[in-house]
């Protein structure tokens, strides 16, 4: 398949063969008919969804429903068997994770993937592509301050607690100055106080025009902050809409509650 070259500064020009997403000004991320099997196991069968620019969009679903597979396909770490992914109107289905990242997608990982034998500052500065050392340090310090974790600056990745790692991973993804943030279970396994702090930060980021797309199990938060929620079950989107629509959907109640 033809892979469109990724520009450092993406311009939202829709490719001619892609009629259904001509409104890329509105939809920053479009997943079209994506399917993926692992051997005999169908992880995703025909999933389509789109993410509005500047929105907070969540994907929920029971374990094994294909959330992580979908996430990894969007981030480029997995290739779908069929279907396509468009970011800013560019087909990124076959692009490498590094290309997708440089196209404006920052991501965090379900299980912490901080660089352990490096300090928090170094973790951040390592991914400030194109910036000078001084600019990179400046940006890193600004983000640590924004996330209220300045005190962690010189700590080693391995020294941090689980919750601290989640925050540093968000800071590290923000170092890329993304237009879309992919957050893989940012609220899993951390205490409610810290969860609320992260929610506040995410809201603040959205205020600045960032698009947030995340997977989580934490129903309370998902229903509270998401503009749109997609519910996955057995590799299909069984429902989508705002919190009220999801709450009252009988199929969701069946699969999830």
């Amino acid at each position: 398949m033809h892979v469109q070259r990724i520009q450092p500064q993406p311009t939202p020009v829709p490719p001619p063969d892609f009629a259904s997403a001509t409104d890329t000004a509105e939809r920053i991320l479009v997943v079209e008919g994506v399917g993926k099997r692992f051997g005999g196991l169908v992880a995703l069968s025909d999933v389509s969804l789109s993410v509005g620019r500047g929105s907070i969009t969540g994907v929920i679903g029971p374990n094994g429903s294909g959330k992580s597979t979908l996430f990894n396909i969007i981030a480029g770490t997995l290739r779908p068997d069929r279907g396509r992914v468009f970011l800013n109107g560019h087909d990124t289905t076959r692009a490498s994770p590094a290309q997708i990242c440089r196209n404006g997608v920052g991501r965090t990982f379900q299980i912490s993937r901080l660089f352990g034998e490096m300090t928090v500052l170094e973790n951040l500065v390592a991914v400030a592509h194109g910036a000078s050392d001084a600019e990179a340090v400046e940006r890193a310090l600004g983000l640590l301050d924004f996330l209220e974790i300045t005190g962690l600056r010189d700590k080693w990745g391995t020294e941090l607690s689980y919750g601290q790692r989640k925050l540093v991973e968000i800071a590290r993804a923000l170092m890329l100055r993304p237009t879309v943030m992919l957050l893989d279970e940012p609220f899993a396994g951390i205490n409610p106080r810290l969860q609320n702090r992260i929610v506040d930060h995410l809201e603040a980021l959205r205020q600045r025009g960032l698009t947030l797309f995340f997977i989580d199990h934490e129903m309370r938060i998902v229903l509270e902050i998401c503009d749109t929620i997609h519910v996955l079950a057995q590799g299909r989107v069984i429902a989508e809409g705002d919190a009220a629509a999801i709450r009252s959907d009988p199929k969701v109640q069946d699969a999830y509650f």
Binding site: A75, G76, T77, S96, P97, A98, C101, R102, G106, R107, F109, R113, L114, F115, G116, E117, M118, A126, V127, H129, G157, R172, A173, L176
Partner: peptide
């Protein structure tokens, strides 16, 4: 430290 993460972060 983590090549997969490094790659995913550009």
């Amino acid at each position: 430290e983590d090549e997969t993460a490094a790659d995913a972060l550009g």
